[in-house]
Nucleic acid binder design. Structure first.
Lengths: 228, 228, 228, 228
DNA sequence: AATGAATGAGGGTTCATTCAT
DNA sequence: GATGAATGAACCCTCATTCAT
C-alpha cells in the first residue's frame, strides 16, 4: 500500500509535470504564432503561460527545444485518425461514394489544420531554417506526410480502372497542395484582402476538380446544371 | 559638351550605386535564404557581398529595409511576362490548344519561381511575421497574385461551355496551390528524402489533372492509354 | 502574520531594489563627472558599479534615463533644507544678524554644492544639450532655483529700509552668481593653476561685498531715491 | 619680380586657406553650440560649411582639433581690447568716474560674451571634460582670465583708500562671477521661463552693488582695519 | 519546484577617418 | 585641393540562460 501510495503519488507528480509542460508549450505556440520564433522572447512565453522565465527551463532545455517540441502538441491520435480516414478510401470503387468520402476527408483535413493553425504557422516560418533532423520531425506532422499513403490507395483505383493512368506521386501531392494552399492563404497570411472562402465549398470544389477535372463533359453538362 | 559630360558622369554614378545596391540585396537574399531573416547577421550579409558591414547602411536604411526591398529583385518585367502569359490563355477554346498552353504556362511559372527561389524562401518564412503593409508588397510578387486574373479568363471558358460550371475563385486558387506546393516541397524544404520530381512531368500531370480530372472517362480511356 | 511577513518581505525587496538603483546612479554620476556623458560607456558605468552592463537596464530604461535621474541623487530633503535656510533670512533687520545669517547661508550653500559636485559637473556639461523638459527638471535642483525666493525676502528688507532701493531680481541673481562661480572655478574646472581659496574666506567676503553694497546708507537714502 | 609674384601668389593661397579654415571653424562652432560636441557629426559640420566631410581633414587633424581650435575664433584683438579696457580702470580715484567706467566695462564684457556665445556654450559643456592642456588654452579666452588683472588694479584702489581692505582675489572673482552668471542663465540655458533681463540694467545694478560694497566708508575704515 | 535578478555574449547601427578618383 | 564612398571599431542595448534564494 505504501508503495502503491508512492507510485500513485509519483504518477500524480508526473501527470502534473506533463500538464505543466503542455501548458508551457501551448503558450509558446501562441506566442510564436503571433510574432514568429525569433521575435518571441522567453519572457513573453513565460508571461503567456503565467509563470517565471526560469521555470521554462525546468521543462525544456532551451528555446529551440520549445520549437522542436511543438509538433507533440498535435497528438499522435490526431495523426492516426487522419491516416485512418485516408485508409477509408480503400475499396471505394463507385465514383459517388468516392466523391462523398474524398470530400469528407478533405473537410476533415482542413479542419485539423485549422485546429492546429498555430503550430502550422510556426512550422511554415521555421521549417526552411531548421536543421535536417528537426525538419524531418516536423514534416511527419504535416499533410505532406500523407502523400505516399494517398498515392498507394490511388494505385488500386488505377488498377481497377476507376482512375485513369497517371503519375500517382504527382497527383497525390497535387491534391494535398490544393488543400494546403487554401489554408495557407486564408489562415497563415491573415488580414489581407483576399476574400475568405467557405471551407465546405472549397472541399466540394476541390473534390470535383480532382475527380472530374475542369473541362465540361458532353454528357455531364445537364447533370451539373441540375445539381447546382 | 561640358554639361553632357557631367550628366553622363552622374548617370554613371547612379548606375554604379544601383548596381551596388542590387549586389548587396542579392547577397542578403542568399544569406536570408540560408538561415532565415532573424538568424542572419549584418556581418554575414556584408561578408557575402564582400564589403564592410557599415557599407550596407549607405544603401539600405536598416536590416528590415533589406527584407522589404527583396521583392524588387524580381524585376517588374518578370511579373509582366507572367501576366502576359496568363493572358495568352484568352480565346483558346480547343482543349488541345488549352492543354498545350496551360502546360507551358505552368512550366514557365515553376521555372520563374525556382529562378527566384531565394526570395521565395525568405518570403515564406517572413511573411507570416510581417506587418500588413510589407506583406501586401510581398504578396504582389507571388503566384497568389495571379489568382484573380486566372479566374477571369476561366470565366470566359465557362461562358463558352468549355469549362463546366464551378466556383472559379476556388478553382483558380486550387491550380496555383498545386504548382506552389510542388516548388515548396522540393525547393524550399531542401535535403529531405522526398523523391524529387521532374518539373516537366509535374507540369504535364497537373495540366491534365486540372483539365480532365482523375476519373477515367469511358470514352477517353483508350485515348489516354494510347498517349502514355 | 503571514501577510505581514509577506509585506515586509516585499518591502525588503523594494528597498533592496531602490538601493541598487541608487548605487548604479552614483556610479554613473562619478563616471559622467569624470569623462562627460557622451564619452562614458555603459560598460564603464557597470564597472564603476561593480555589476554587469546588462544589469543597469533592469533599473534604468537607457543611458539617457541615467542622466535624467541624476538629480534624484540630491534628496528632496536637501532642497527643502536649503529653502528653509533661505527662509531664515526673514525678519532679520539688524545688519549684524543679517551678516551672520547670510554668511552661514552662503557657506552652507557652497558646502551643499560641493557635496553634490559630481551631479553639478554633469549638469553643467549636459544642460546646454538637453531638451526643454529635462533641463527644467535639472534646473530645479540648482542654486538658480533659489533666486526668486531670495528676491522676495530682500523685498521686505527694501520695504523696511534695511536695503536700498534696487532691482531685486538682478541683485539676487548676482549673489547666486558669485557663489556659483567660485564653485565652478575651483571644483568643476579642476587641476588648474588657479589658487584654491578657502570657502570660509570666500563666504565672508561675498557676504560683506553684497551687504555693504546692498545696505541703505543713512546719508545716501535720499540721493538714491532722487536718482531713480 | 618672379619671386615677388610667387610670394604674393602664395600669400594669396595662404590667405585663402586661412579663410577656408576659419569658415569651417565657424560652421563647427554653430553646430557644436546647437547640439553639443559629442552629438555633432563631421557630416553635419561639413553640411553647415557647405563642403564635403573629407575636406575638413585638410584643415584640421580630427574632430577634437576643431574643438581645440575654437578659441582662435575669438581674435587676439578682442582679448587685447578687453584687457585694455580693464587697464582703463587704472588711476580712476573718483567714485563717480569709477562707476561710469566700471559699468561701461561690464557692459562691454557682456556684449563680447554674447558676441561669441557659440564658443562660450561649447566651452561650458566641453571644458569639464577636457584634458589639462586644452582646458588651459580655453580658459585663456575666458572672463576668468581677467581676474588677476582686475585684482591688481583693485589693489591700487585699496592702497589709495578708495576701496576698503578686502581679499581682492575673492572680490575680483566675485565680480566676474556675477557677470558670467547672467550670461550663463540667459544665453546658455535658452528657452527657460526665467524672465530675460536687460543687460544695461544688469550692468548698472552690478556696478552699484559691487562699488557700494567695495568702497571704503569714511566711518567704517577704522573698524575694517581693526578687524583684519 | 519555482522564482526572477543578474549575467554577458552578440547583434544592429553609427560615425570618425581614410583614400582612390 | 576636393570629394564622398567605404571602412570597421566601438557603442548601446537585448535577451537566452543561469543560479542563489
Amino acid at each position: 500500500m505504501d508503495e502503491q501510495g508512492k507510485t500513485s503519488g509519483e504518477g500524480w507528480r508526473e501527470r502534473l509535470a506533463a500538464e505543466r509542460r503542455r501548458h508551457i508549450l501551448e503558450a509558446a505556440a501562441r506566442a510564436f504564432a503571433r510574432k514568429g520564433f525569433a521575435q518571441t522572447t522567453m519572457k513573453e512565453i513565460a508571461a503567456e503561460a503565467g509563470i517565471a522565465p526560469g521555470t521554462i527551463y525546468l521543462y525544456f532545455k532551451n528555446k529551440e527545444d520549445l520549437l522542436i517540441s511543438l509538433p507533440s502538441l498535435i497528438a499522435e491520435e490526431t495523426l492516426a485518425d487522419a491516416m485512418a480516414e485516408v485508409g477509408s478510401l480503400q475499396d471505394l470503387m463507385s465514383p459517388a461514394d468516392l466523391e462523398a468520402t474524398l470530400c469528407h476527408l478533405i473537410r476533415n483535413g482542413i479542419r485539423r489544420m485549422i485546429q492546429h493553425i498555430e503550430v502550422f504557422r510556426v512550422l511554415l516560418s521555421s521549417v526552411p531554417v531548421m536543421d535536417e533532423e528537426t525538419r524531418e520531425v516536423y514534416l511527419r506532422h504535416t499533410p505532406l506526410y500523407f502523400g505516399s499513403a494517398l498515392g498507394q490507395i490511388f494505385q488500386t483505383y488505377v488498377e481497377q480502372g476507376v482512375f485513369r493512368d497517371m503519375d500517382l506521386t504527382i497527383v497525390a501531392r497535387a491534391l494535398i497542395g490544393m488543400i494546403f494552399f487554401f489554408v495557407l492563404v486564408q489562415e497563415v497570411l491573415p488580414g489581407q484582402r483576399v476574400m475568405p472562402l467557405d471551407y465546405d465549398d472549397v472541399a466540394r470544389e476541390i473534390t470535383r476538380l480532382f475527380l472530374y477535372g475542369a473541362l465540361a463533359q458532353p454528357d455531364e453538362t445537364a447533370n451539373t446544371e441540375e445539381e447546382s
